[in-house]
């Protein structure tokens, strides 16, 4: 069976490397499903889970905090500022991050930049909790 190489890379080093028969990700413009031999593509991602369907029929979830996906016929590279494999996510920490973000959102409504940042943090934390519990 044809497979496609997948790697998820962050500034702190590679998070995931492996082969897959299909990769699905949520781009800003909608869901993307990538099979081996896909035409070269670049798309920005949303804060979401990247799903890697590997050869044994299992599915790996990787939480990404945005970034973008680069597709070549034989290789998929996902570049995100932060990413975690579902199994590595510490749910307690994600919960704490979620609470912090909620508090910050509630406490300052006037400062737009801070609010936007807190909202972003909230989204990321919820995404991580979501993915960790889905597994």
């Amino acid at each position: 069976m044809k497979t496609i190489q997948v790697s998820v890379v962050t500034p702190d080093g590679p998070v995931f490397e492996g082969n897959a028969k299909m990769v699905s990700a949520k781009a800003k413009s909608g869901e993307l499903g990538i099979l081996p031999g896909h035409i070269p593509l670049v798309a920005p991602l949303t804060i979401s889970a990247v799903r890697v369907h590997d050869v044994d029929g299992k599915t790996q979830y990787v939480a990404v905090s945005g970034g973008f996906i680069e597709v070549r016929p034989e290789k998929v590279t996902i570049l995100a500022e932060a990413a975690e494999i579902a199994g590595d996510i510490e749910v307690d920490r994600a919960r704490a991050a979620k609470e912090r973000a909620e508090q910050r959102l509630a406490s300052n409504k006037q400062d737009n930049l801070d609010a936007a940042r807190a909202e972003f943090a909230l989204k990321r934390a919820m995404n991580r909790i979501d993915i960790a519990t889905k597994r």
């Binding site: 800003k28 413009s29 070269p40 593509l41 670049v42 920005p44 970034g67």
Partner: peptide, 19 residues
């Protein structure tokens, strides 16, 4: 490879350049 850009080059640059 010359890439397809989804949705458009400008929008990708919007994400990509700050990163």
């Amino acid at each position: 490879s010359s890439y397809e850009y989804e949705p458009s080059e400008d929008e990708i640059l919007e994400v990509l350049l700050p990163q």
